[in-house]
Amino acid sequence: MKMHSLKASLMTAAALVLMALNVQARAAVSAEQLVTPIAEYKLYVLDNLDQLVDHTRRFTTAVEQGELDRAQSLYAPTRVYYERIEPIAELFADLDASIDAREDDYEHGVADPDFTGFHRLEYGLFHNDSTDGMAPYAKGLMSDVNDLDSRVRDLTFPPSTVVGGAAALMEEVAATKVSGEEDRYSRTDLWDFQANVDGAREIFSLFKPLVAQQHPDFVARVTKNFGDVEKTLAQYRTTPDDPASGFVSYDEVSQADRHALAGTVTVLAEDLSTLRGMLGLD
């Protein structure tokens, strides 16, 4: 009995010490310090939106003018700018659905009248190998992207969404990119994959200075895992290791590399999900 109560009080004391340490650790990041990286992140998103508007204009013009080859080649490079800023873009439920939903999100699949956007165009361009009937979807996509651009400009970014965005992007990769279901007709999944990694890495880099001192192991582990993922991805560029070149078809990715990527990305998602707590934003 005595032993038990001694043990209990020891544990209570330990818990109190831990709580005190925890409070101190969290107070080390002041609200003021968070303003800069969040503002920088919005500027990053705005730059990518400019590019998205620009590329979407070229892509949808090619579709409307019936230039199949050009439209096919512009599909993946255009999506990159959406995939990088997905944590913010998907905050608008209506536009996320009309721009980026997949056929499985609808009861009637490809035939569903509400199925529009990138993946509806992907189905036409890569499954049917045709631009026939695609002009209305191209027009709709352009107007949705313009709408997204103006809404994001007016949006005050919620700090916890920004910080949580790094993990959200990696979860997205783990859930839908590694399986190859995102771009099932074009097989351009690696473009999206890289763009999600870019977006997550941007967030990590912006907030890293605030946690580097207190959590050096976390920073080292995440940096190494990002490096590993990018190294594997770089092997599948059309000109290997040339960051300016595109990617080969997802079909060419070996089973071993798919497994390795899945593992690293899952660890990244788990690690990055602790960033919010480290910054006192949970």
Partner: peptide, 17 residues
């Protein structure tokens, strides 16, 4: 909340830039 305030100040920083 603190997060609300951070959001406003960050957005003000963006519009200043």
């Amino acid at each position: 909340s603190t997060a609300d305030i951070i959001g406003v100040l960050a957005e003000y920083r963006v519009s200043t830039i």
